[in-house]
Write a protein that binds this DNA or RNA. Sequence first.
DNA 1: ACCTGAACACCGTTCAAGT
DNA 2: ACCTGAACACCGTTCAAGT
Lengths: 211, 211
Amino acid sequence: MTARGRPARLSRAAIVAAARRLVERDGVEALTMRRVADELGASPMALYRHVRGKDELLVLLLDELAAAVPRPRLPADPRERVLTASRHIRDGLAEHPWIVDVLAGGDLIAPSILWLMEEIVAGFLAGGLSPARAADGYRVIWQFTVGDLVVRRGLSQVAALGRPPFVLGVLQSADPERFPALASVAGEWAGARGRDTYEPGLRALVDGLLS
Amino acid sequence: MTARGRPARLSRAAIVAAARRLVERDGVEALTMRRVADELGASPMALYRHVRGKDELLVLLLDELAAAVPRPRLPADPRERVLTASRHIRDGLAEHPWIVDVLAGGDLIAPSILWLMEEIVAGFLAGGLSPARAADGYRVIWQFTVGDLVVRRGLSQVAALGRPPFVLGVLQSADPERFPALASVAGEWAGARGRDTYEPGLRALVDGLLS
DNA sequence: ACCTGAACACCGTTCAAGT
DNA sequence: ACCTGAACACCGTTCAAGT
């Protein structure tokens, strides 16, 4: 029990830290204003003095994690530089699957990840692309990365359920008469599920963009 | 079989239709069991007699829309076949931005879209890929497509807010000292936002996969 | 200035009862 | 068999009041 006369002082940082603890312990769906307040031994409304609302809290959380992405040594070769920087963004974000829900909101940017964007755009420019094509190139890589994160998150959610994946069953039993190609690769889906397709996909993408 | 008891006023089909109306009129966030019930003039709990819960309702909705994707005439050339089939999946799903929330769940497949998957895999096989690489190829395309849908949805949500995009501001005012490449393409982001980058990205991806 | 309590307008879903 | 009503265990957030 806490001293009644002296309520704990809250701060933005303390709130974000509590949110992070919660999300890492129990997943995004556990991140509610009420539970964050509980975690801090405060009333739900106390949070609103320091944070505009749940949306802002999520953005603050995102930026904190982005700031923790390690700064890699990047190769000099433009193509390899783009690949390495992209993989770093993916790896950094993939550690926190709930990030997908924040990303899906759309208009977010973590200032602390700008330098990785810089590397990707610089790589494209050094590779000979025009500014317009370099900007498009970044967008395309970002799209591919978001897709990877969403799909990856989906797979791990299904794995957590413990039941055999519904999709796999449908694909593996595709009717060979109607779907000959699907039938002939039926044995491959289980393996493809386990493989990390970010790397080869990214490579194909960057090759295509820089050629 | 003799009908016993009360005649059914509701049905699965009626519930899915009401859900669809709701989602198309007011967006996904408006899709609640209670509102679907309202739409049908029934009590919330009446739905549970016909549908397991909200999750099942979303899957039923997804499959209904997938069934409506038009069957295109596909080019014979393997590469063009993959491109056309992929674009059809994207276009079909992009009409219903809320689909992203369903997709993110992970273990879903719309049986009525299997034939488009068939075309993509067949294209890769005809292009000389091994079964394993063809399966990976499909996954990569799917990832890119999901990313496109998520990003596209995010952009339209931001546009709906009416306020100037926060991300754009940050990118356009990137410090030229620290981020020279970003600064040199600063003028391009607004344009890149408006452009559809699915087409060029997909082309780069497929070129890379088939080369 | 900072925090609390009660309240509002919602959710999905369970359970028991009505027709 | 099919549907309703009340209730449970939650949400995010507003508002007025307490210290």
